[in-house]
Structures are given as structure tokens and as C-alpha cells.
Design a protein around this nucleic acid. Structure first.
Lengths: 112, 112
DNA sequence: CGAACATATTCCTTGACGGGAATACGTGCC
DNA sequence: GGCACGTATTCCCGTCAAGGAATATGTTCG
């Protein structure tokens, strides 16, 4: 779900991890060192990001290399993209809405 | 900041509010009625969304009409858009990274 | 098998956040 | 001015999540 994705990205530390992974896959230890976060917390954050489908793991020797998952970002792009077409119509509907206040509330708009 | 935006959208109720506002501006009371949330919570959520720059208010009579703020979605689109170009390079860099494990870890690089 | 390393998982504590109820604020109308 | 309506704010409480510390799990190597 979108809300879950945003929830995962909403945490500052996790957002930093995602930004870091932009420059390429990285191991848990490297992420911890780069961001100044302790390893256990990094693992926890990666768990959340993984559950949200934002990152995925690839085992390499004893290390675990995390990388971004393109699908998650495609979904976000689709979601936000579906807004753009409607900005004009939305601004129109504001005026329309305000108009309905007159017609809808014959008494004084505060019908009830 | 992006993280703050995502944090605001990550809350399920707030996400529903945004989805509702997609179809056009709405008053606090109407939002509450449409989503089955009590008015005070709606006001609180709108406060968070407003602070994050996701929505804005427009006074109309005694009501307050909330509408989506295009800029916020543009920023999200820009952010997620800056990823898409790099998917190929990123997948490459995974291979590169794995290669460096051989060269980089001469001690016992735990290569293989 | 045992040691060393990398990562994951618990347990704990604390602070932030969401929902409920009551109330304060603001504004238009008689 | 006083009242009714719409909205915002406060207080309280329960829950949840994040950070710290310690430990468990897994894997490689000697």
C-alpha cells in the first residue's frame, strides 16, 4: 500500500539510508559507518524498508548487500503522476464548490 | 524536506484525506463525514498536512476549504523522478561492488 | 570443531503520536 | 450583543516505534 511505503520513508534515518543507496548497493556495516548509525539500528531500519518493498538483499560472502527496489519507486511515480493531470480541474472545482454553497444551502448555507 | 512530507503521508488517515481531496477541495466537516473521522482529529491531521505543505486552506464563510498543494506533489515527482534514470547504472554497480570484494579485501576479503 | 566476523534479533526504556472528550476560538446572523 | 455553527486547540491516556545494550544467528576460515 502507498501509505505503508510513505510511512517507511517518513523516518529520517530510513530516508537517509535510501538516499545513500541511491549511489549504489551497500552492506549493512558500510551503511552504519557512512551514516553514523549503530549496526543494530541499521538492520532494523533495513527490515522495515525491506518489508515495505523499498529495498532487497543480496547475499555476498558473510555480508548482505542491500539495494533499492525499482518497483517501489515506480509505484510512487505512478501515484504522484496520477495527480498532475488534475490540477487545473481541481482549481476549477474550488470555484464550483464555493458556488454550491449558495445553491445547496437555501436557508443561509447552514442548513440542518 | 522530503522525509517530513512522507511522514505526513505515511499516516493512514491522512493518506485517506489526501485521496479524498483528489476529487476536489472540501471543508473540514465534509471530510469528517466522508471518512467517518471525528472533526477534531480531522483538524489535527489537516494541521500536519498543512505544516508539511501538502494542503492549504481557503476561508469560505465560516467554513474552511482545504485543497491539495500542487508544489508538494511536484517535489515528490522530482525526487522519485531522479531515481529512474539510474536503475541500469545501479544494477551495474551491484556487480561492480561484488567485484571489489575480491580486490578490496586482500587480508581475507572473504572473497569467493 | 572453534574462532572471528557480519548481521539479525531480542529486551528495555523513553518519547512521540493518534484517538477520545471537552472546550476555546472565530465568524456570521437575529 | 448574544447565539448558533464550524473549526481549532487542549488535556489525557494508551500504544507504538526508535535508540541503546546485549546477545543470538549465520557464515567463513584455520
Amino acid at each position: 500500500m502507498m501509505a505503508a511505503t510513505f510511512g517507511a520513508l517518513g523516518e529520517p534515518s530510513r530516508f537517509r539510508i535510501v538516499e545513500l543507496l541511491r549511489s549504489g548497493p551497500s552492506s549493512v556495516g558500510d551503511i552504519a559507518a557512512a551514516l553514523g548509525i549503530r549496526q543494530p539500528q541499521v538492520s532494523k531500519h533495513l527490515r522495515v524498508l525491506s518489508d515495505a518493498g523499498i529495498v532487497a538483499v543480496e547475499a555476498a560472502a558473510r555480508r548482505r548487500i542491500y539495494h533499492l527496489e525499482p518497483d517501489a519507486f515506480d509505484e510512487i511515480a505512478d501515484w504522484v503522476g496520477s495527480f498532475e493531470q488534475r490540477w487545473d480541474t481541481r482549481l476549477d472545482s474550488l470555484g464550483q464548490y464555493l458556488d454550491t454553497l449558495d445553491t445547496k444551502g437555501p436557508v443561509d448555507g447552514t442548513e440542518r
